[in-house]
């Protein structure tokens, strides 16, 4: 049913650290690789070698420039984005077929492809661009939170995490239960001030973003700090200092 569960037992999701993401796109293709071979129809690529290639991806990395309000030089932020597994997921309630649903046990939002008519309405309802209709299969595709990995008994325990998290070289992606305030991800969110995307949409996303840490904080030093106090007035003095300093070691 496309009714949303009152609440889910767990709230599994991702925490993405914008202070650490270098914009390498590893999570993008790892996701494509896993999800093309696994859950549902392969993620197709149209006009794959032609003039206007366009394929289905469940995770994409944008890059922004931010001009600090306080002045100073522009900052660059790499910004990965996939389904945020919203608590109040509008993509689910609009679905006419019941193909879209949110799991009660862990809050994962999924599409049951056999039931999907490919009307595209859920993609319209999602504020985040997290759903893409696969043009070859005609069904809606979205991040599954790697539901076929995280519980997969054919994988070693340590690999029961999403493909994008496993591959992220910078360790900018974290996976866990955001419904449990004592989980590592929840603590990270609390500590670093994790935030929601477009909170005004009222979707209550599960995924959280950690803000970039303050940048360019070293002051322009007009006078030399004590740390750089010259040891001597003129070059000859330097040699004297050297001799003394060597004596001390």
């Amino acid at each position: 049913m496309t009714q949303l569960p009152e609440t889910s037992e767990k709230k599994l999701g991702l925490v993405i650290d914008l202070d650490t993401c270098v914009g390498c796109h590893a999570c993008v293709t790892a996701c494509k690789g896993w999800n093309t071979e696994n859950y549902g129809a392969p993620l197709s690529d149209m006009d794959a070698y032609g003039s206007n290639p366009s394929g289905t991806f469940l995770n994409r990395v944008h890059s922004y420039e931010v001009e600090p309000r306080a002045g100073g030089c522009s900052q660059t932020v790499h910004f990965p984005k996939s389904c945020l597994h919203c608590d109040d997921a509008p993509c689910v309630t609009v679905c006419p077929t019941g193909a879209s649903y949110k799991r009660q046990e862990d809050g994962i939002v999924l599409v049951e492809e056999d039931a999907c008519i490919g009307c595209g309405l859920c993609a319209w309802a999602c504020p985040y661009g997290a759903r893409e209709l696969d043009l070859a299969a005609g069904v809606m595709k979205k991040c599954t939170l790697c539901v076929d990995r995280i519980y997969n008994e054919n994988l070693p325990e340590e690999d029961r995490i999403p493909a994008c998290v496993r591959t992220c070289p910078a360790g900018a992606r974290h996976f866990g239960d955001l419904g449990d305030p004592s989980s590592e991800v929840s603590m990270l969110v609390a500590e670093r001030g994790g935030f929601d995307l477009m909170p005004e949409q009222g979707t209550q996303p599960t995924n959280k973003y950690l803000p970039p840490r303050p940048k360019d904080q070293l002051p322009d030093m007009d006078v030399l700090s004590p740390a750089l106090e010259p040891v001597a007035g003129e070059p000859k003095g330097f040699l004297k200092w050297l001799d003394k300093a060597l004596e001390a070691i």
Binding site: L18, V28, F57, S63, Y64, E65, V66, E67, P68, P211
Partner: peptide
């Protein structure tokens, strides 16, 4: 993007 606390944001590169 949630980047408003820093300042005005602009798309630099699309994904």
């Amino acid at each position: 993007t949630g980047l408003g606390d820093i300042g005005a944001a602009r798309l630099f590169e699309p994904p």
